[in-house]
């Protein structure tokens, strides 16, 4: 039997198992902390910074936090929400997100966060700098115009013998996702589907597949992102 610990989020008393990850534990307690780079069961990247919360008054990323008894977490507070919105808007202008023409629309976590945070238009000017599309792999292509560099693909999609199929190239604002063409040759259909589903946005897409689910019936078309977690409380 593992030990239970107590903590609070915005004053609400919560419980979790000792050593639990804050994002997961919040979820179990019906509290949604927005995430983008987080992927359950995979080493946290702490890179998108959306999951910023205040822990005992100090800003920290929730996805990299292991809970300790008595932690006092602020989640739904004004300055944190403002920071998150700024990050979402930054991601929108750092790439080229033409949602109406994107296969991921409705299933895209960035788009859904834009809605949830009531972003009408980013406060930052668009630069519209075009990025290279890599369509050399037989089953998938990468449209870097939409990549938010969350590194979910880098961290989780490996070959059977543990080699990376995806990696980052360059640094800073020039950083971009690269795909190992040789290893991508052998990706199966399932792996390609999994890769597409791993990507929170429309950067990794499966070839020869489009609009299986009509727009309007997709994951975030009717209910905002996070509402499935918050549901638990009201039920």
């Amino acid at each position: 039997m593992s030990e239970k610990i107590k903590f609070t989020i915005d004053g609400k008393e919560c419980f979790a198992e000792k050593g639990a990850n804050l994002i997961e534990a919040a979820k179990e307690n019906g509290v949604y902390i927005p995430t983008l780079c987080h992927l359950e069961g995979v080493k946290p990247a702490g890179s998108c910074r959306i999951c910023n919360v205040k822990i005992n008054g100090r800003p920290m990323t929730a996805c990299t936090t292991t809970l300790i008894e008595g932690m006092n977490i602020e989640n739904n507070v004004e300055d944190i929400q403002e920071l998150r919105k700024i990050i979402i808007e930054t991601l929108f202008v750092s790439g080229n997100h033409y949602c109406p023409a994107c296969e991921k629309s409705g299933n895209c976590e960035l788009q859904a966060l834009g809605y949830r945070f009531k972003m009408l238009v980013p406060r930052f000017p668009f630069e519209f700098e075009e990025k290279e599309v890599d369509a050399e792999a037989p089953k998938i292509y990468i449209d870097r115009n939409r990549c938010i560099l969350c590194k979910r693909c880098v961290r989780s999609l490996k070959t059977e013998d543990g080699k990376s199929i995806f990696a980052v190239q360059g640094r800073g604002y020039k950083a971009m996702i690269n795909i190992d063409h040789e290893l991508a040759m052998n990706m199966t259909d399932e792996e390609a589907t999994h890769a597409m589903d791993t990507c929170p946005v429309g950067s990794i897409l499966k070839k020869e597949r489009g609009y299986y689910d009509p727009i309007g019936s997709r994951k975030y078309d009717k209910k905002p992102i996070g509402s499935e977690i918050e549901q638990i409380v009201t039920n």
Binding site: S47, I86, L91, V93, S94, G170, G172
Partner: peptide, 16 residues
């Protein structure tokens, strides 16, 4: 030039 590019704000808010 020197940002490692991991964090979204450091990567791009600097450019903005």
């Amino acid at each position: 030039d020197e940002s490692c590019g991991s964090c979204a704000p450091c990567r791009y808010l600097t450019v903005i």
